[in-house]
Design a binder for these strands. Structure first.
Length: 544
RNA sequence: GCGCCUGUAGCUCAGUUUGGAUAGAGCGUCGGACUUCGAAUCCGCAGGCCGCCCGUUCGAGUCGGGCCAGGCGCGCCA
C-alpha cells in the first residue's frame, strides 16, 4: 500500500540524511486536514528537533534531500509550516488504483489481515420477556455491524444470542400471563413489583385461553411460561429479521447447568481460592481485582446469581477456541463485566482475546420533544413500532451514526424525511442517482469505447478518486477500533463529494472517451457506497 | 459517596486511538443555481472562551491532575 511505501521513504531518508535507524512502523503518517498540505504528511522532523538539537525545518530539509520517491507514485515532497513534510500522490497512481475497483466489486475494501481467525460476537442477549425496544435496536445494529466489519477483515464470525428462560424473570413472566388470564375470565389483574404489564402479555393470555380453555390456574405456570417464551422469541426473531439480522447460535443458560459447566466453574474458582462462604452464600473475591466489594456467586437459597453462569458461559467461549470474543452490552451492564473478566483471567484464560463494547442509551425525539419511555409502565417504544414509523434502513443507519459511547438522540421526524436533511436518504440517493446515470449510459450505448482514466483530471474528479482510495483504510480502522460509526461518517462525505462532482460535470457527453472514464468513476463510487451500506446492513437502492 | 460514559457552531454530532499546520460536517437561518445523465441535488454567507482551571510540551479539542454539569450503574435482579 501507498502508506507503507511513504513510511518506507521517510524511514529511509532518516537513515540516509540523518543517520538515524527508525524502527519499522514508528513513522507516523497522517492525512492533513487541509487539501493544500498534500495527501500524506509526517511531523517527524518536528518531533526529532529536540533530540537532535536542530531546527525542524533543517532536519526536514536533510530528509527530503535524501529521498528519491518513485515519480509514478509520489508526485511531490514538500516542506511546509514549522517542518512538516508533505507528500502529494501522483494523479496517475490514483487513477491506476481507481481502475482496480470495478473488478473488485464487493471485495473492494475487504482485507485478509485476520484471515483464518474465528470471532464470536455476542449481542442483544435479552431474555424473552417482551418485545425488543429501541435500546435493543441500537445494540442489534451495532453488534451486527461489528460482525460485518470483522468479516470484512477475514474473520469467520459467529453471532450469538445468550438468554435464560429458566430464572426469576421468567417466573415473573409466567405469573404476569396468569394475572392477565384471570383478568380475561372476569377477575382483576394485580401486578406486584417486577411483573410485566405490557399489552403483549394480554395477547399471550388470550392465546392460552384459546388453546387450553378457561380452566388454567397456579398449577399451569410452566405452560404459561412456555407459551410466553415461544411467543416473545418468535417476535424477537421476526423483529431482528426485519433488520436482516440472523444469529448463528442461541445459547441458553440452562444448558450450562445441564452439561455441568456451572459446577465445574464453581469448583475451579474454589480451587483457585477465589471464593468463600458467608451468610450461607458463596462469594467471589472481587476485591482482589480492584472491585469495591465482593460479589455473591451463589445465593443462600442455593440459586446462583447471573454472575456464575456468566463466567461459565464465557469459559465455553474460550473452550470453543475463538480468536476474538466480542461482547456488546448496554451501559446498564457496565458494572458486571469486570468481575467476569477478572474471574476468567484468574482461571487462566487469555482475556486479551476478549473485548467488551458498551453502548450508551437511546432517546427518541419527536417534534423537538423527548419521548418519555419507561419499561416498568410499558410505555417504551418497540423496535417494530420504530420500523413501522421510519423504516428499518433509516433506523439501522441512525443507530450507527454516532459513537457507541455517545448517547444517541434519535430524531424520528428527521429519520422519516425523504430529503437531503436525512443522512440515510442522502447517501442512498447518491447510489440511486448513479444507477440511473449508468442506465442512461446504457440506453445511449456509450459503453463501447475503452475507458481512458487519464481523462479524469478535474479537481472534483481527483477529490472523488482520493476519497475512494481511503475506503479500505477506513474499513480496516473501523474494524480494529470496533467503531462502526466511522462508516456512516465516511459515506456521507463520499456522497457529498459525488453530488458536488455531479453538479459540476456531465458524465454522459458527446466525448465517448471522457464519458467512459467518468462512467468508470461513477461505477467505483457506486460500489463503495453499496459496500459501505452493506457493512451497516442498510440497503443500496437502485431507485427511490 | 464511588465507578463508567458524555460535554466541540442555534440543534445533532465527527475529529481524541497515534498531540501538529487556519477545529470540520449535517440540519436550521439567509442569499443564489434546473431547456441537458434524478433539484430527494448543488453553490455561497453567517455562526466557535472545543464545559472551567491548572499542568506537561516547541505545539493541547487530543495527554495528566482538579473542578462543574448531564446520563448510566453501584442487589443474595439481569
Amino acid at each position: 500500500m501507498i502508506k507503507e511505501y511513504i513510511a518506507q521513504l521517510v524511514a529511509g531518508s532518516a537513515t540516509k540524511g540523518l543517520g538515524l535507524e527508525l524502527p519499522p512502523g514508528s513513522v507516523v503518517l497522517e492525512k492533513p486536514k487541509q487539501q493544500d498540505h498534500g495527501d500524506w504528511a509526517t511531523s517527524l522532523a518536528l518531533s526529532l528537533a529536540k533530540e537532535l538539537k536542530r531546527k525542524p525545518r533543517d532536519i526536514a530539509q536533510k530528509m527530503v534531500e535524501a529521498m528519491s520517491p518513485d515519480p509514478s507514485r509520489v508526485a511531490a515532497v514538500e516542506i511546509a509550516g514549522p517542518g512538516f513534510i508533505n507528500f502529494r500522490l501522483a494523479d496517475e497512481y490514483c487513477r491506476r488504483q481507481l481502475g482496480k475497483i470495478p473488478a473488485l466489486g464487493g471485495k473492494y475494501g475487504t482485507g485478509d489481515r485476520h484471515a483464518g481467525k474465528r470471532a464470536q460476537v455476542e449481542f442483544v442477549s435479552c431474555n424473552p420477556t417482551g418485545p425488543l425496544t429501541v435500546g435493543h435496536g441500537r445494540q442489534a445494529a451495532a453488534g451486527d455491524a461489528l460482525a460485518r466489519l470483522l468479516e470484512s477483515q477475514g474473520y469467520r464470525v459467529e453471532r450469538e444470542y445468550y438468554f435464560n428462560d429458566a430464572g426469576l424473570q421468567m417466573r415473573m413472566l409466567a405469573e404476569s400471563v396468569l394475572y392477565r388470564y384471570r383478568e380475561l375470565l372476569g377477575g382483576t389483574a394485580e401486578f406486584p413489583e417486577g411483573h410485566y404489564q405490557g399489552e403483549y402479555i394480554r395477547d399471550i393470555a388470550e392465546a392460552c385461553r384459546a388453546e387450553r380453555g378457561g380452566g388454567l390456574g397456579e398449577g399451569d405456570l410452566e405452560y404459561f411460561k412456555a407459551k410466553a417464551v415461544e411467543t416473545t422469541f418468535a417476535d424477537i426473531r421476526a423483529t431482528l429479521g426485519r433488520m436482516g439480522i440472523v444469529f448463528d447460535n442461541y445459547f441458553n443458560e440452562s444448558s450450562l447447568y445441564a452439561d455441568g459447566s456451572i459446577a465445574r466453574t464453581r469448583q475451579a474458582l474454589g480451587d483457585k481460592g477465589l471464593t468463600y462462604e458467608r451468610d450461607g452464600a458463596l462469594w467471589f473475591r472481587a476485591t482482589g481485582f480492584g472491585a469495591e466489594k465482593d460479589r455473591v456467586l451463589v445465593r443462600s437459597s442455593g440459586e446462583p446469581t447471573y454472575r456464575l453462569p456468566d463466567i461459565a458461559y464465557h469459559v465455553t467461549k474460550f473452550e470453543r477456541g475463538f480468536d476474538l470474543i466480542l461482547d456488546v452490552f448496554g451501559s446498564d451492564h457496565q458494572a458486571t463485566y469486570p468481575d467476569v473478566m477478572a474471574a476468567l483471567g484468574a482461571l487462566g484464560h487469555d482475556t486479551s482475546r476478549m473485548d467488551v463494547r458498551i453502548h450508551q442509551f437511546v432517546t427518541l425525539t419527536r417534534g423537538g420533544q423527548q419521548v418519555k419511555m419507561s419499561t416498568r409502565k410499558a410505555t417504551y417504544v418497540t423496535l417494530d413500532e420504530l420500523f413501522d414509523e421510519v423504516g428499518a434502513d433509516a433506523a439501522r443507519y441512525f443507530f450507527l451514526m454516532r459513537r457507541m459511547e455517545s448517547h444517541l438522540d434519535f430524531d424520528l421526524d428527521l429519520a422519516k424525511k425523504q430529503s437531503d436533511e436525512n443522512p440515510v436518504f442522502y447517501v442512498q440517493y447518491a447510489h440511486a442517482r448513479i444507477c440511473s446515470i449508468l442506465q442512461h449510459a446504457e440506453a445511449k450505448d456509450v459503453r463501447r469505447e475503452k475507458p481512458d482514466l487519464g481523462m479524469l483530471t478535474a479537481a472534483e474528479e481527483m477529490a472523488l478518486i482520493k476519497h475512494l482510495l481511503d475506503y479500505p483504510d477506513m474499513v480496516a480502522g473501523a474494524a480494529e477500533a470496533r467503531e462502526p460509526h466511522r462508516v456512516p461518517t465516511y459515506l456521507q462525505e463520499l456522497a457529498g463529494i459525488f453530488h458536488a462532482f455531479y453538479h459540476k460535470h456531465r458524465v454522459v457527453t458527446d466525448d465517448p472517451k471522457l464519458s467512459n472514464a467518468r462512467l468508470d468513476l461513477c461505477q467505483a463510487v457506486r460500489i463503495v457506497l453499496a459496500n459501505g451500506l452493506g457493512l451497516l446492513g442498510v440497503g443500496a437502492p437502485e431507485r427511490m
